[in-house]
Design a protein around this nucleic acid. Structure first.
Lengths: 166, 166
DNA sequence: CTTCAAATGTTGAGAGCTCAAGTAACCTCA
DNA sequence: TGAGGTTACTTGAGCTCTCAACATTTGAAG
């Protein structure tokens, strides 16, 4: 148990800016999509991932990985999307554990109708205020963070987060 | 209705990186705080804002503004925090509409106990992988985005988002 | 082959959030 | 002074998410 290294002023400000930005951006997009297309942003992402997949279908596992969703969350989401008729579940013929999620034609239509407004909102809130240089810098920075987040997420605690901080 | 300006490759990648980063980061912090201190990250932020306020109290409105929360969300949150004994509601003597939220001593203790683990997690996931230069760049970029987000949020639609896009 | 661990996915309960609707107090101004 | 708008805050219903538990199927090891 070592002394806590608190955030310095720069870090504090950066952290809060990140927090507020991601909060407000998420809420703005959620509101826009919900209002205009009746689906939350997380569900929109699921439809996008399916639409980009070969045959517009993916196993639940693959879909969860691509959408960075927990299996549970995805399952609940697909339940709802299936009720809406936008996604269909299909059993895998070979391996009876795995299930495909397929984007239906109707789901594709909904996505196609939702996309322009969504992209416009992303542009307005995120890209319009930034220079191209800032966008590229931002991408690199986020990729760096994402790499460690993904690494930490895969094998949480193989070597113990409590032990080896010497 | 003009043609949609889709995101180019750089923008697409930047956008998804932002999305995944903010998602994973939020989830990691939520899990850590929930596990170690029994409160979601949004509630932690509320306690922090109160702890930094003079007299450790704020009106609900001010608190909502600082924590970038809707009044409704804040009200629900304070209900729960009050049940836990970490926050207390006090009526304003002069203006009977307004209510103060006060951080209790017990709430302060909980916050003090939660802070080191939380800061450690933020450091590990966000700041450790970044150079100081990246941190400062990131801060500027986020501030820029935040400025327009705040501006858009305050007066949504004074001039109509449907009309004047000519 | 049988057993046991791993992989895939689902469910239900509980908690937080959103949105729309409400209540109550204050303020303005004719 | 009282009518109408504004400000401050709360509530309830519905929806999504989390977490833990579960069921099923597959693969591996003896």
């Amino acid at each position: 148990m070592t002394e806590t290294r608190w955030l310095d002023e720069d870090e504090q400000q950066t952290w809060r800016a990140f927090l507020w930005t991601s909060r407000l951006l998420n809420e703005a997009l959620d509101r826009q999509l919900q209002r205009d297309s009746g689906l939350p942003h997380a569900y929109y992402v699921i439809l996008v991932m399916l639409s980009e997949a070969p045959g517009r279908e993916l196993t639940m596992s693959e879909l969860a990985r691509l959408a960075r969703s927990s299996p549970s969350r995805l399952s609940h989401a697909v339940n709802r999307l299936e009720e809406s008729g936008w996604v269909r579940r299909v059993k895998h013929p070979g391996d009876r554990r795995t299930t495909f999620a397929q984007l239906t034609d109707e789901g594709f239509e909904v996505l196609a109708a939702a996309a322009p407004g969504h992209v416009e909102a992303v542009r307005q809130h995120l890209f319009d205020p930034l220079s191209r240089e800032q966008v590229l810098e931002l991408r690199e920075t986020l990729r760096t963070v994402l790499t460690t987040l993904d690494r930490d997420g895969e094998s949480p605690d193989l070597f113990g987060s409590g032990g080896g901080r010497s």
